[in-house]
Design a binder for these strands. Structure first.
Lengths: 162, 162
DNA sequence: CAAACTATTTATAAATA
DNA sequence: TTATTTATAAATAGTTT
């Protein structure tokens, strides 16, 4: 992509490297998200840029669960409430962001269809399609809301903070 | 990519899903590799396909090292990361805010266009249902906005935790 | 500087062998 | 079925605003 081909080696210019990281990070998370949804699998993705800012993504299951599976740890030893809280906050935010992205696209599609509506094409079929589209939109949003209210555990962990 | 656009939902046909997983897994690992080299960062990537076989990739450092680093941060480091993460959360949230705003604006446009439909060409009942659905959508979006603000509060509160 | 644009390269879904 | 080909969509480096 981009202008011309690029050698696979560390980008030496700091600013360029930072911009590239920002772009590619976004792309990588999107790809991970798509793979987890389309192919119905769990994914954990963690990045440690030297700046120290941690970026992570996990698809389908909570990061902590994926870790547990990976490291074969038992849950009772886990008093990493603060860590888990942070993971969930980040994860929720990123998932929400994805959902909003999707909604945006769907809405755009809906708008386009609305513009194309002409009296003669406004038959029941078109109407039904539009309705189901909006219904899906509402459903997706309700899903987001559900996730919000169901994150009680996040709340209770949170309550453990003095 | 591919022929035409595809919806972001689980691919139901097993064979197609498998093929897609195989292709996208390869692509994702390549992207992760490129990011780790070009931008000089550590990456851990783990996938759990239903088949049970674990796929993993780690750039720069071995997977275990990355996890160890993550799981065994010192308190100071963790606090530092927590702050970085919170900054990220807030940044994400602000982006989210803008996107939701835009979404709302688009919705408003869609609503206006709906109202412009010629009354005689519409089935009034269907129209009423559609409008109420759009209203619900707007209402739901307002909740998403609320969620966004509470995330921010949550984040700030957490920062005060030891 | 960051957001938007543009030219190219990549990734990949569907078709084909 | 698996590998290859092809047609499109996506990603992104460099450029501009």
């Amino acid at each position: 992509m981009g202008r011309g081909k690029q050698e696979m080696r560390r980008i030496e210019d700091k600013a360029t490297r930072q911009v590239s990281f920002s772009r590619r990070k976004k792309g990588l998370i999107k790809k991970a998200y798509e793979l987890s949804v389309l192919c119905d699998i769990d994914i954990a993705l963690i990045m440690f840029p030297p700046s120290g800012r941690l970026t992570q993504f996990s698809g389908k299951k909570r990061m902590e669960e994926v870790f547990t599976r990976y490291m074969h740890l038992t849950d009772e030893e886990r008093e990493e409430y603060a860590l888990e809280l942070l993971v969930q906050v980040i994860q929720n935010t990123e998932v929400l962001q994805r959902e909003v992205d999707r909604l945006q696209q769907q809405l755009q599609t809906a708008e386009e269809q609305l513009r194309e509506f002409e009296p003669q094409s406004l038959d029941f079929k078109a109407m039904g399609e539009l309705e189901s589209m909006v219904e899906r939109l509402v459903h997706t949003l309700e899903h987001v809301l559900q996730r919000k209210s169901s994150s009680k555990r996040l709340g209770s962990y949170y309550a453990l903070c003095p």
